[in-house]
Simulated scan of single mutants.
Amino acid sequence: MAAHTSMLHIRVDDDIKEQATAALTTMGLSVSDAVRLFLRRVVVDQAFPLELKVPNAETQAAMEESRAMMASRRKGENRFASADEMFADLEKNSGK
């Protein structure tokens, strides 16, 4: 059975919409996705939802690294040739 949907029209300052669109894109969401998520959380929690924030530079770098690693795995590529190589990399990058 198809879900019934409704169109929601809102007025937003152009500058706010542009800035919000940029921030949401960084989070992997469209404005429509964000509004749907917002409304669903209001329904589920019966409260105003918590604020989503744009990840800081370190978190964004980690997310990009993770995406690249997943893409490599999908292609059948291994990041390390052996467990020893993986542990050596962990040691090197752990700050010890």
Rank of each mutant, 00 (worst) to 15 (best):
D84R: 14
H9S: 11
F48M: 12
A47S: 10
P55H: 01
D14C: 03
V42D: 00
S6E: 07
K92L: 10
N93E: 04
M69K: 12
K17V: 03
A3G: 13
M69F: 07
L24Y: 01
L24E: 00
L90D: 05
M7I: 15
G76N: 01
S6K: 14
A81D: 15
D45C: 00
M7L: 14
D33Q: 03
D13C: 05
S82F: 05
D84F: 07
F38T: 08
A88D: 12
E64L: 15
A88E: 13
T5L: 14
V12I: 11
P49A: 05
A83H: 13
K17F: 05
D15G: 08
D84N: 14
A61P: 02
E18C: 07
R36G: 02
D45L: 04
A2D: 07
N93G: 02
N78Y: 09
A2T: 06
K53M: 13
L24N: 02
F48Y: 08
R40Q: 09
N56E: 05
S32R: 08
E65L: 14
A20W: 11
L50F: 09
R11D: 05
V12S: 04
G28F: 02
V35T: 01
T25Q: 15
I10L: 15
N56H: 04
R41E: 11
R40V: 06
F87K: 07
